[in-house]
Design a protein around this nucleic acid. Sequence first.
DNA 1: TATTCACTTTCCATAAGTGGAAACTATCAA
DNA 2: TTGATAGTTTCCACTTATGGAAAGTGAATA
Lengths: 114, 114
Amino acid sequence: MESEYQLDSIFFALSDSKRRLILTELSEESKTVGDLASRFDLTMGAVSKNIKILENAELIYKSKRGRQVYCHMNFDIWRKVARFIAMQTKFWELRLNELESYIDTQALGEKNGH
Amino acid sequence: MESEYQLDSIFFALSDSKRRLILTELSEESKTVGDLASRFDLTMGAVSKNIKILENAELIYKSKRGRQVYCHMNFDIWRKVARFIAMQTKFWELRLNELESYIDTQALGEKNGH
DNA sequence: TATTCACTTTCCATAAGTGGAAACTATCAA
DNA sequence: TTGATAGTTTCCACTTATGGAAAGTGAATA
């Protein structure tokens, strides 16, 4: 957690447009691996591997219901990405920090409990 | 501009911790390729290639002074990254949009002119 | 002009990412 | 139990990334 290695895996996961499409899809609602495979015209194997990359970066997490595996966005992780960006751009930093404080104090109920 | 392909190159460029270190270095002040090579104990060739990847993603830009090539952060591009993140996390979206409006109206003088 | 300097590019070997096909696992249904 | 369904993993061929070494480029200096 909080390591350079984790940032490697996050940005690597985001560097492929198919994986970003999967994330966009999941930001609407949770989907099964099969849903995503038919949506993007890929084999289950290919989707499963990309899902693994996103899961490894903790951008998503999975839950099992019977035979089906549901994929969910992990909204918490985006804060880490935003923090890195803020650090590069001091101009943003102050206001993003304000935003973080706001989230920390006002939005605890929003945190997903997986 | 504004394409999926550009996001590919941005996130790919960010997926390597050496390149992120270079960016952190450049967010302090502009440096030559040689400065960066000695700072990170890499050959000029290796640094030059990584610089090219960062330049391709438009995260930095170069300027020449005699034999030396100076590398500068391109702060503008970070807005694009922030926008992608905001789109994934609707929770952030509203407030980042406010931030963008603020920047667009109040901070035109801050824009680097290269 | 010849040489040094700052950098870029090419060539090379090594390593890693990619997706299809097919084998494998686990769950549900008849 | 048998068979179908939902995913995962392995194997394979192909493509791409990586950095060192060395050749190539262009600008400063003797």
